[in-house]
Amino acid sequence: MLDLSKFVEAYLMGIEVDRVERKVVLSIKEPAGKGWILVATGVSELMVLQMCMQNIIDRISVWTGSAVDADCRERVFSLLSGRYATDRDDMESPLINRTVDAIQRGDSMLIELEPVYGASVLMLASGLSVAEA
């Protein structure tokens, strides 16, 4: 499993989207200045909200396999609908259930960059890797 804890309070510097290869590349810089590249492959859904000049990461979460919970289901709703969920929204729709089932089977993973400030990123992908920049 990837150790994503080093990205707490790191900066999201840029996002590159390759529609043909279905790949999203996130450029991240640690507070000390070390650069990293996160590459999500097999991306089928992507949502980026509030990208700013300065984007500080609170945490990066990945849901896959048995890690699926109510928070995951809520994020899937947001990703597929393009808006945050409310108490009145149906979290059991067939599309959400199919997506959550794919995450539980390990066919997909839900990746979230939760911000302290700036960009919030949600994506559904089949793989995630990290490399030094």
Rank of each mutant, 00 (worst) to 15 (best):
L122Q: 08
G35N: 03
E21Q: 15
S81Q: 14
V48M: 03
D69M: 11
E9C: 07
I28T: 05
T86N: 02
Y11M: 03
I57R: 14
V62N: 10
L79G: 04
L38A: 00
E92F: 04
M109P: 15
G118D: 05
K6L: 10
L4I: 01
L110W: 03
G106Q: 10
E16T: 12
M47V: 10
C72E: 01
R73F: 09
V24G: 11
L38K: 00
A10M: 06
V43E: 08
N55T: 04
G65N: 04
I111A: 02
M1R: 08
R98Q: 05
A32C: 07
P115I: 00
S5G: 09
M47T: 09
V25C: 10
A67C: 03
S78F: 02
A40V: 11
V8L: 08
M109W: 04
F77L: 08
G42L: 09
S27N: 07
D69T: 04
D101P: 14
R105H: 09
G65A: 03
L4H: 11
E74G: 07
V24M: 04
T41K: 12
A10D: 02
I28V: 14
A131M: 13
I60M: 14
I37Y: 04
V68E: 02
V68M: 02
T86Q: 12
A133R: 10
M123C: 13
I103A: 01
N97Y: 12
P94E: 00
D18K: 14
D89C: 11
E92H: 15
V8H: 15
D90G: 01
G33I: 05
D87V: 06
S61W: 15
